[in-house]
């Protein structure tokens, strides 16, 4: 059997509040294969977003083992984790989280500039992405001049621009009305069909239906996979 894309072994996360300890994730064991489209579901406070940020290496304070493409993330330092995350992950957020002082073009350019890619290469990559997501006409607009759906489309484009292996999406359609949400989900399906692994957190059964695997969390425990 091939090496899993992601493997978690007994991963746990908790927060201390004075004398009390709140558990957010408990003994998480799971394996994700390359090319999967996974939906993480569960009630509020179940630990879905925490799991997503843990996978994206935004969260450092967990215990257990985390292997990414066979590399033991739990043994890596902060800088190496950051490099690994930059290389393999793209993020899509519920509130889009575009930088509102930058234009659409600049929002797409900024992740590339953080990867020290040459300006000429960046320009062609941004232009390709604008084309691919059909948002060329919007390139000089600021986020506040776009609809929610358009903003999220830019958010997905930004996540994809550095050609990541995995997209982590935290309730990507949570702030959109149904038709815009559908458009975004169709986009995810297309990306998945093109080879990108998608891991989304969602409350929506419909959105979960776009994927091929559902992991259910309750009170930090995986109750169904």
């Amino acid at each position: 059997m091939s090496t899993p894309l992601i493997k978690l072994v007994n991963v746990e996360r908790y927060y201390d509040h004075g004398p009390t300890r709140t558990w957010v994730l408990r003994r998480i064991n799971m394996e994700l294969q390359d090319g999967e489209f996974v939906s993480v579901m569960g009630p509020s406070g179940a630990g879905k977003s925490t799991l997503l940020h843990l996978l994206g290496m935004h969260d450092m304070g967990w215990s257990g083992e985390y292997h990414l493409l066979g590399r033991p993330v739990h043994k890596l330092g902060k800088k190496e984790r950051s490099e690994l995350s930059k290389k393999h992950f793209g993020f899509v957020f519920q509130s889009y989280h575009l930088l509102d002082t930058l234009t659409v073009y600049e929002n797409l350019d900024i992740p590339l500039s953080y990867r020290n890619i040459k300006k000429s290469d960046r320009d062609s990559m941004v232009c390709d992405t604008l084309d691919r997501f059909q948002i060329v006409a919007k390139k000089d607009l600021f986020p506040s001049q776009l609809s929610g759906g358009q903003q999220q489309l830019v958010g997905v484009a930004r996540a994809m621009i550095a050609n990541p292996k995995i997209i982590l999406a935290d309730e990507p359609t949570g702030n959109l009305h149904s038709s815009q949400g559908k458009e975004i989900m169709e986009m995810f399906r297309k990306l998945n069909q093109e080879g990108t692994t998608i891991i989304q957190v969602t409350h929506s059964e419909t959105n979960a239906g776009y994927g091929n695997r559902i992991i259910k969390l309750v009170d930090g425990w995986i109750v169904d996979d």
Partner: peptide, 13 residues
């Protein structure tokens, strides 16, 4: 702070 977090999330050191 959210802006800085976004910058970090999209790859800034």
């Amino acid at each position: 702070s959210k802006e800085f977090a976004i910058r970090l999330a999209v790859g800034a050191g």
